[in-house]
Design a protein around this nucleic acid. Structure first.
Lengths: 258, 258
DNA sequence: CATGAGAAG
DNA sequence: CTTCTCATG
């Protein structure tokens, strides 16, 4: 069973660049998209989702901003999402929980803190609330995967230039410490679990300069497993081949045994 | 002596599309541009104005909006511009007056009324003030040309579909009547003067549909002459050749004898 | 440096 | 339909 996380940086732009073909090629059973930046009715009229996929969009209230979507060739029910003290309705369209038989998928787009101190503070409050909200899923005896663009690179292996980014949102000491606590809770970073330490493979590259060609990237897209899911990990991958520049993020793959 | 009026619909976009080559080809002695939508410092650093041209930019205060510019291979002095009751500083960058020896050029970008009743009312107040401000130049014994995008098609010969546009800003009865009064003041529409009635040649086409390919256009760009200039009219033209789609307006030419 | 909105034409 | 700005990433 193949689970995929992909920040598409605007689904409409991704459609123009031919995301359809890549969706077929990747062959996900559950495909979780972030930064869709679109409402259902804004999708091109002459376009339709790849055949055989159940689709659920969870947009932000603000047009052209944030939003997640989950597609699946399996049966798919939507479960209640993330509500917390400051936002009971997930107004920014950041978390979508789906169930596919016994598998539960938590599709997440964690706030970006690069917009200034206010957004960084919001990000950190959001992180704490989300981590607490997530905890009950750890104990499930069925597989639960927590997937998405978490906007944090965890260790020095997860970023091209750790020294130069120690003061950049996404690699701040308190964000990295939070990530360590998240894994301490019991969530397994499937990519690092399979690849081990030292493998510097990235999932996002800035659009500025030649970052992608020079592989000056960050790994900020994750597929985390609860213990029940971790037992089933078969393979992981981040697809970085040329021609896949549909988004500034690469699709991240986790294969689980049935 | 060749005078040219050209609404470039964004000078930066026009530069990307190769306006430089066309400027050389056209060979104006005085080239008057409208809708430059740019400040001097926003021009590409690796770009420079065609050699041998004196240049004066008159931008709007609001970025990316309106603005006129005059280029000349002749000597060029800037004269006081258009000040009126509602706007003593020409905040929208619409009128630039230059002197080239005995020739005076009034480069004008008349407000567009398509933005709603408020803008239409502003346009009409502007028109009246501008027409009055212009009148003293009629009596000059040296040539004065009033040039630019006047955002009005005068007669049924100046628009592809007069019936369908009787309620469209730019072809409203009161705008056409105003234009008749302007010519009644003594200004000579050089294009119509040379071509005579019945010639339906346009200078602007909407970007919607296939308006340009189908020649569904309007003539809203003019070179008006005071009597001293009218005596010297040699030729007029509107260059509409393929490949010149640098802007949605065509360059309009007036040749005067020296 | 790219996305999308929105104002303006 | 295109221009440009602005917010956001």
């Amino acid at each position: 069973m193949r689970l995929v996380s992909w920040n598409v940086n605007g689904l409409r732009a991704a459609i123009r660049k031919g995301i359809d073909g890549w969706i077929e090629t990747i062959g996900a059973d559950v495909l979780m998209l972030q930064e869709t930046r679109v409402l259902e009715e804004q999708l091109p009229k002459d376009w339709s989702w790849p055949q055989g996929h159940a689709v659920h969009l969870h947009p932000a209230e603000k047009k052209g901003y944030s939003g997640v979507a989950t597609l699946s060739t399996l049966e798919q029910d939507v479960l209640p999402g993330f509500a917390w003290g400051e936002d009971a309705t997930d107004i920014e369209g950041r978390v979508l929980v789906t169930r596919h038989g016994e598998l539960v998928c938590v599709n997440t787009y964690l706030p970006n803190g690069g917009g200034g101190p206010e957004r960084q503070a919001y990000k950190e409050r959001w992180m704490d609330a989300w981590r607490a909200w997530l905890a009950p899923w750890l104990e499930a005896d069925h597989p639960v995967v927590v997937v998405g663009d978490l906007n944090i690179a965890h260790t020095e292996d997860d970023i091209w230039n750790p020294k130069g980014n120690a003061k950049t949102s996404g690699f701040l000491p308190q964000e990295r410490a939070w990530f360590t606590k998240l894994l301490g809770d019991g969530w397994v970073d499937s990519f690092r679990h399979v690849k081990g330490e030292g493998e510097k493979i990235y999932s996002w590259w800035s659009n500025r300069g030649n970052a992608r060609a020079d592989d000056k990237g960050w790994r900020i897209d994750y597929l985390l497993c609860n213990p029940a899911a971790a037992k089933r990990i078969v393979a992981v991958d981040i697809i970085r081949q040329a021609g896949l520049e549909v988004s500034d993020h690469a699709p991240c793959i986790l294969d689980l045994s049935d």
